[in-house]
């Protein structure tokens, strides 16, 4: 899989960072192209205080793209919700830094307090529970970070190069650009790909895609362009995509991207 987030870094702040569940998440983040930095405080002070100081120091040294932050640190009563105090410190100093709270308390009063406080600064803060699948953590981080990467792999055979405005089809080194997908057609496919990257089941409404079509009947023109995109990718993959493959029309409301099964 292409490393779509090369050079991006996620800071992991958790006193159980070597637990199996955290290792699985870190592995998935690294598959996604992110590097992970794990906070390992020097011993000396109480556990929570150490983590807090080490986290703030680390952010100051190398501003990460996002922070994955636990709520509870150790069994010390004072550290029960140390993560919320670290959250407050980060939000106050770096209000735009995305923070994903990784906790067993994805709902409930602690989340309410933290969300209310972070909303005061309009900070990008979200909560996810520790039983979430690594894929779910990745999706949540993608949206928190916000900006789409320069290239988006769709399944194993399609790669959208956003900066070069090209769609590559093929596997590994054998990828070739589908040159028929240019201009408005590229914009339509990019729009579908970016939405799929951020939220795989989300439909893109006609109104958003019709900006890239023209003529008296923009809906019909859009339909033709979608067919041409499917044909171009299908030709490069030696297949023909049917109505319920690659780009599908949902109840005449809009289109959704479905990665081809390989």
């Amino acid at each position: 899989m292409a490393r779509v987030n090369a050079g991006r870094n996620i800071l992991v702040v958790d006193d159980e960072s070597e637990s199996d569940i955290l290792r699985a998440v870190r592995r998935r983040l690294e598959e996604e192209g992110w590097t992970t930095t794990v906070i390992e405080p020097e011993s000396g002070h109480s556990l929570g205080e150490e983590f807090e100081a080490a986290t703030l120091w680390s952010i100051e040294q190398t501003l990460p793209d996002a922070v994955l932050l636990d709520v509870r640190f150790g069994q010390n009563r004072d550290d029960q919700f140390r993560g919320l105090s670290i959250l407050g410190e980060i939000v106050e100093r770096w209000p735009k830094l995305p923070i994903l709270m990784f906790t067993q308390y994805a709902q409930g009063p602690d989340r309410e307090t933290a969300v209310r406080d972070s909303l005061k600064w309009d900070a990008p803060v979200d909560f996810i529970d520790k039983l979430a699948s690594p894929d779910e953590v990745v999706l949540r981080l993608r949206r928190l970070i916000g900006t789409a990467p320069e290239s988006i792999p769709i399944g194993n055979h399609i790669l959208v190069d956003v900066s070069a405005r090209l769609v590559y089809v093929g596997e590994g080194e054998d990828r070739d650009p589908a040159l028929e997908i240019q201009g408005m057609k590229f914009e339509i496919f990019r729009e579908l790909a970016v939405t799929w990257y951020r939220s795989p089941g989300e439909l893109v409404a006609f109104a958003r895609l019709e900006r890239y079509s023209e003529g008296e009947d923009p809906r019909a023109s859009l339909r033709v362009r979608i067919r041409e995109i499917k044909d171009a990718i299908g030709k490069a993959m030696n297949t023909r995509f049917g109505p319920s493959e690659l780009i599908i029309n949902i109840r005449d409301q809009g289109y959704r991207l479905v990665p081809p099964k390989s």
Partner: peptide, 17 residues
């Protein structure tokens, strides 16, 4: 949920490893 979550996280973490 914290108490029940801990053994579950261990089982699921081990499964993913």
């Amino acid at each position: 949920d914290h108490d029940l979550g801990r053994p579950l996280r261990r089982i699921i973490g081990k499964e993913r490893e």
